[in-house]
């Protein structure tokens, strides 16, 4: 790169001070710096309240609990950054867990085929969301709201009103157990390994050509199309990613808790809150997947802190609402400047 292009001076029109940078570093919309600071402050607060929080096993247990939400946030990120929403993930998680219990029905041999089936089902739901949104041009908000209702209704009907069957111990192991005998850490939970895998794949995808094209689609779909991007396909892939992430999160959540219709309730909004908290702009085109995952971790830390402080669960929902309002308002203000 020549000095001409690299130099901010020369004959170039002066860049307004404080406006440059944006995207990656800096404080602009899409930056991860604010969420990092909030996360550090919250972690300090949790550490004060619960001094053993930084013991490796406690910390890993915390990460294990946070893994499903972080994975959901990663999936939701792909959809949001392309300019869409996925409201179906909460009910998809519920559907997956209920399906798993009924199909496995305590039979260990059925575990791995069912895990494969769950992933395929997540992809299928993502495909339908994507195709309806892009080819039929239904706003994704409506498409995925419809899918949410369809899944809730279908699961109720299929099970006759209460979940049946049981998960096998092998299945629950994924969410509960880990690799034993790791030095220093003790047990390394499988959930944390899965989370690491998802995080690496997500970051690599966003660094690849696909990720950059996805950002361009969310930023300006018309321009992207006129530059040769298959926008419908790219947006559909984002829904596929979200569906697959929901399936993975469901498998982990199935291990944590019991089988119920409540497993995934409200998770779509928690995931969207996390993504927004991570500096990702609703409407698309700005923000990083690392930010979205950090946002989920931050949200989980906040919920932990509220729990430690004895704040009731009901109030934590209000806190989420405030976060989403504040984050979007701040993002809009920053963009306007």
């Amino acid at each position: 790169m020549s000095t001409d292009v690299a130099s901010p001076t020369g004959s170039a029109p002066a860049v307004p001070a404080g406006l440059g940078g944006g995207g990656r570093g800096g404080w602009g919309a899409g930056s991860i710096r604010p969420v990092l600071i909030i996360l550090v402050l919250l972690l300090i607060a949790v550490g004060i309240r619960q001094p053993d929080f930084y013991d490796p096993p406690v910390l890993l247990a915390f990460l294990k609990r946070a893994a499903p939400l972080i994975i959901l946030a990663a999936g939701q990120y792909f959809v949001i950054v392309a300019g869409d929403f996925d409201l179906s993930v909460g009910s998809l998680v519920t559907a997956e867990v209920v399906i798993a219990a009924r199909l496995i029905d305590g039979d260990p041999a059925a575990t791995w085929p069912v895990v494969a089936l769950l992933l395929a089902f997540g992809l299928l739901v993502g495909l339908v969301n994507g195709v309806v949104t892009t080819l039929l041009q239904v706003p994704s908000f409506i498409t995925t709201l419809g899918m949410y209702l369809v899944l809730v209704g279908a699961v109720y009907t299929w099970t006759g009103g209460s979940p049946r069957g049981a998960l096998s111990e092998e299945f629950r192991m994924l969410g509960r157990r880990g690799v034993d005998g790791v030095p220093v850490l003790g047990q390394l939970p499988y959930a944390v390994l899965v989370l690491a895998g998802v995080a690496v794949l997500a970051v690599l995808a966003m660094r690849a050509d696909f990720g950059k094209v996805l950002l361009a689609v969310g930023d300006n779909p018309r321009a992207a199309r006129l530059t040769g991007v298959r926008t419908a396909r790219v947006r559909t892939i984002a829904f596929l990613v979200s569906g697959a992430c929901a399936a993975v999160a469901a498998i982990l959540l199935g291990g944590f808790g019991g089988v119920s219709f409540q497993v995934g309730a409200g998770l779509e909004f928690t995931a969207i809150t996390a993504v927004v908290l991570g500096g990702v702009v609703l409407g698309g085109g700005r923000g990083s997947v690392a930010g979205a995952m950090l946002g989920a971790l931050t949200l989980q830390t906040l919920l932990t802190l509220l729990n430690l402080l004895g704040v009731s669960g009901a109030l934590s929902s209000a806190v989420q609402g405030l976060i989403i309002l504040a984050a979007v308002a701040v993002g809009t203000l920053r963009r306007r400047t």
Partner: peptide, 29 residues
Amino acid sequence: KGEGLALSQSVLDNALLAQRAVRPRWFGR
């Protein structure tokens, strides 16, 4: 602005968009 550029993306990302869209690749980037 309406049909040519992804305004929130970098100069480089805008300049690379056509190639990324039509000839995506992992090696040789």
